[in-house]
Amino acid sequence: MAETREISAARRRWMLLAPALAILVFAASGPLLIVIMYSFLTPGDYGGVIWSFSTDAWFNVVAERDFFDETLSFSDAHWSIFWRSVKLSLMTTAVAFLVGFPTAYFIATRPKATRDIWMLLIIIPFWTNLLIRTFAVMEIIRNEGVVNSVMIGLGIIDEPIQLLFTEFAITLGMFYVYLPLMVLPIYASMERLDFSLVEAAYDLYASRWRVLKRVIFPLVKPGVIAGSILVFVPSLGAYVTPRVLGGGKQLMLGNLIELQFGQGRNWPLGAALSITLLAIVMIALMVYVRSAGREEVSHG
């Protein structure tokens, strides 16, 4: 009788899971497989694909064939966009850490009653529209925006500095929209931090800096790694922020992909680029999972 009950429990479980899995397979996981397939097809003249096998798309991800003499060369345009995506994402992550760590620490050391309020202040922007927040950044750094106006008013500069449509603008925007993702996990580790350990370190002659470096930071490291991944991954795949703040001049991977489905009319290349982006993200996630696993082992 134990077995029949287990079988009916299993059937019930899969029936409960069915709707969610069906939606996800239809509108999330399944289409990913089609992307892989498209990356091996030939582009159609007006978008779409011609159903004949080709590895050109993958080839074009990193290289280009000269139109006249068929010689091969590295695709400088693509490489510079790859490089910019990685560079700006790393910078965003670094800045988000430098600001997010002290902020998380600050919140975690507030009295218990007010901590939740501080965290709510971090969470609210995160749940508000990403486009609107990017737009808000755009407004303040444009030539007529607050930043330039204030600096001109103070006599620091005579003419507005071009901030918008630069790499700086994209980094600032991504930092701004993804910062909560850094604060949240660091705060989660920090809140569990036992401050008697900090007291013990001070008792053993550690300075404030060394307490931070040798005791606090190692203990909240899992949160820092989680936060860094949470900022790095969406930065790498960012589309809206570089589009609005880069103004079509400073492309990132997301924009390059979009381009292939728009003006570029090269769907297979777009598909191959998407898979490339996905692969980089998966590697980052795997590194995270492995390091998180190691933390668990060493702490257990």
Binding site: L32, V35, V233, Y239, E258, L277, L278, V281, L285
Partner: peptide
């Protein structure tokens, strides 16, 4: 986990 742009392209 998957970048939104990738899902968007897939869809």
């Amino acid at each position: 986990m998957i970048p939104e742009i990738v899902t968007a392209v897939a869809l």
